[in-house]
Simulated assay, not measured.
Amino acid sequence: MFFCHFKHFKVTQITDSFLQNLAKYPLIAHHFEQTDIHAFRQRLIEHMCIVSGGDCVYKGESMFDSHVGLHISQADFDAVVGHLIEALKQQQIGIATRNALLAKLAPMYQEITYY
């Protein structure tokens, strides 16, 4: 798989950069006001590991169940993707790998957005 050469720490570093980027963006940060960030971080690391071809176990809810009722718009989704791309760049992930990861995540759009 395209990402399996990454060590677990790389997925963790990407996740941490991503969360730091989101925290600085108030139009997205409000979606996380009632979220246990430590638990969210762990589920996100697991999810990114699985999506990237790792042999992790994801212990979270489905994308649909974890986003239902959050009223995430296309603009919200696009902003989050932008912050993920920035995190990937910050961690020096090449464009081909970034695009491969984004292609794996793109189908989740319909499970996450509700507008």
Rank of each mutant, 00 (worst) to 15 (best):
G69M: 10
K7I: 08
H71W: 08
H31W: 00
S17M: 08
H38F: 04
S66A: 14
H30S: 11
A87H: 05
I93G: 02
E61R: 15
Y58A: 08
G94K: 10
E46T: 15
K104E: 08
Q34W: 10
L27C: 02
A39C: 00
G69K: 03
A29R: 11
D16P: 02
M63Y: 13
D36A: 00
I95Y: 02
D16E: 14
F18L: 15
Y25N: 14
A103T: 03
E86F: 00
G94Y: 11
I28E: 02
A39K: 02
I95A: 01
Y25W: 07
D76E: 02
R98L: 07
T97Q: 03
L102Q: 01
P107K: 10
L44N: 05
H47Q: 15
L101A: 08
K104A: 14
F2C: 00
Y114V: 13
M1Q: 03
I95D: 00
Q20D: 12
Q42G: 00
S66F: 14
C49L: 11
V80E: 03
G69W: 04
H38G: 00
F32C: 13
C49E: 15
I14V: 12
T12N: 02
G94H: 13
T113V: 15
G94F: 05
G69E: 05
Y109F: 01
D16T: 12
I95L: 07
S52F: 07
K104C: 13
K59I: 04
G54M: 14
K89S: 00
H30D: 05
Q110K: 11
I93K: 01
Y115S: 11
H31L: 15
C4A: 10
H47I: 15
L102D: 01
K24C: 09
S62T: 15
R43S: 01
E86H: 01
M1W: 03
K89Q: 01
I14R: 03
Y58C: 07
A96G: 00
S62H: 13
L22T: 15
R41K: 15
H5K: 07
H5R: 09
N21F: 08
M108A: 11
A87F: 04
H5W: 01
H83A: 13
P26T: 03
D16M: 09
Y115C: 14
L101G: 03
